[in-house]
Write a protein that binds this DNA or RNA. Structure first.
Lengths: 342, 342
DNA sequence: TTGTATGCGTTATCAG
DNA sequence: CTGATAACGCATACAA
């Protein structure tokens, strides 16, 4: 593979001159410029970006750490990040942690050894041992948190108005006449569980509906837990008239439970969920859902990160962008509750 | 950020010695070794992989070019690739082309400048101007094609038995009594269209069913085309009794059309599609589908690529791995056709 | 076994 | 405006 030296000798100039025409920052005589350009074309020369990175101390590479690309929430986010990165001349290298901190820690090591210019981070853990991210920040690695905000660590972030989204959806259910609204959360100590449950609690409180502890159930964001909990709820003596799932995966379990029990939504039970799954839009029941702007999370986070990289304003206050969700009302919550119940 | 020099001076040894304990290839006295290790720990030293890459002429980085991570077919493939890459000490940088050749060409340039060790490629175009990939191959870049095989260019590949999968599914429909089976393909000149249509033709021929050109419709792999074509088919004077879509996205359009016409599957129309969407499994109608091992495509392709990188057997014949699909029979094709029609 | 020196391909500094 | 040269951080051949 030809080097800048080969180009220089072929064009009969020095490497400095070649470098100058490449960068375009220094003016070069037309004569020499064309000779260099010809040599580049003839040799099919491609600058070695590794060498350039070493010299310039910047890799034009962004690391991105997510839970799992197979979770349909992430592809759009990654795509948004990649598009924004590409537009600014950066590339993205993505890593899945499955929300395992040890893996996240490994990836941190790797990315820092590879000298990425910045990091887009969906933290595995929102509290607990965050020493690796704390250390990285202290050593000057620009980080933007996506989707979740770690506690006790002030970082730039782009998140979604989770509480507001849930609140709006629960309000919609209440307005439809529901009072016995069950919520399935995603496990104690998780950021998403906490903020989405907040929305539920706010809406219920605002409507003056007393809380029934039996209707606030803690799942684990997995399908099986949605299934099991929904089955329990629906076969209990005093079942809810509506079920809200805190993510779409658990909602799949809920839908499955409803079908297995021979029930139908919205006829027998009203359903709603966080996360819109565009793919399932055409299938029945059409789900009422809280849609989040995944692409925008990735894109805006990346733009913010690149801004931080280019403009390392040390003392600048952190930025916390919070994007709105959108309530999409559909069939699964279209029934109006009569006085007698569902 | 500390360098190998800092470690050396702190441990009171030479950089060569530090390098030796790092690589572990040369035996170092226990005394020196521990001193070096201590210095590394104290300084929180991380080897600069950029510098190492420059010296060793290998980046331990794999490029991956796909159509669009938002298409649910790809996340699993990417995940398979990433897991396999990580297991071998490589990282992956992924790019979306939306099947645009110009973008593919740009990405090729970029990846070659970045000196990736190898490339996982879902080609945008299967015929036409493939000069960029041909040139890359000639210059020694190891490439493994995933999902599609470009024509007139012999490259290692990992694909799926598309024709076999479709054939099996059509045979299933025939066995259920269908003879008027429509197929919606994805546009002329595309690899996937061609190989999947082949499966349809084989199955029909084997069953001795004459082809009805009205039932072989060319879409474009997008939802709208599935919708429009299904609507046409279903409202035609002599409609099919079954519709097979060549990918899941068009099938979404088909499902939508069925619903809009007030029909129901399988009661009024039998449906089947390539690609299983696990997410939609719980929704109605449960779709009969041809499932492909996406994760395995990525994982096996990556292992093959790494094998090629480590073992650049120049003259070795290309390997073409073809993975089997799996037919998943579900509700949408569960009706048995009576003599009178659906 | 350990240290020294050279080069990987660029960029940047500084004379000319 | 152009050319020579010194880093960038590491690995490796070679010498000690």
């Amino acid at each position: 593979m030809p080097t800048i030296k080969d180009v220089a000798s072929r064009a009969g100039v020095s490497v400095g001159t070649v470098s100058n025409v490449l960068s375009g920052s220094v003016t070069v005589t037309d004569d020499l410029r064309t000779r260099v350009e010809e040599a580049i074309a003839e040799l099919d020369y491609r600058p070695n970006l590794i060498a350039r990175s070493l010299k310039k101390r910047q890799t034009n590479t962004l690391g991105m750490i997510i839970s799992d690309i197979v979770n349909p929430f992430f592809p759009e986010m990654v795509r948004g990040a990649e598009d924004a990165a590409a537009a600014a001349g950066y590339i993205l290298t993505t890593f899945n942690t499955d929300d395992r901190v040890e893996r996240e820690r490994q990836v941190f090591e790797l990315l820092r050894s590879r000298r990425v210019d910045g990091l887009l981070l969906v933290v595995a853990l929102v509290r607990g041992d965050l020493s690796h991210v704390r250390q990285a920040v202290e050593e000057g690695l620009p980080i933007v948190c996506l989707d979740r905000r770690p506690e006790g660590l002030d970082l730039d972030s782009v998140t979604v108005d989770n509480a507001g989204g849930v609140r709006q959806c629960i309000e919609h259910l209440i307005e439809r006449g529901h009072r016995r609204i069950a919520v399935i959360t995603g496990g104690q100590g998780k950021y998403i569980t906490q903020v989405r449950l907040d929305g539920y609690l706010e809406a219920m409180a605002a409507a003056g509906i007393p809380l029934d502890p039996n209707l606030i159930r803690d799942g684990n964001f997995r399908r099986e837990s949605g299934f099991a909990i929904a089955k329990e709820l629906l076969t209990s003596p005093n079942p809810p008239t509506a079920i809200f799932s805190c993510n779409h995966i658990m909602n799949l379990g809920v839908v499955q439970a409803v079908e297995e029990l021979g029930l139908e939504s919205p006829r027998d039970i009203t359903l709603a969920t966080f996360d819109r799954l565009k793919l399932t839009d055409v299938f029945r029941p059409h789900m009422t859902s809280v849609e989040q702007p995944s692409y925008e999370i990735g894109a805006q986070g990346t733009r913010l990160l690149i801004e931080r990289i280019k403009n390392p304003a040390e003392g600048a206050p952190r930025v916390h962008i919070q994007l709105p969700t959108q309530l999409r009302i559909a069939e699964s919550s279209s029934g109006r509750l009569s006085a007698a119940g569902n």
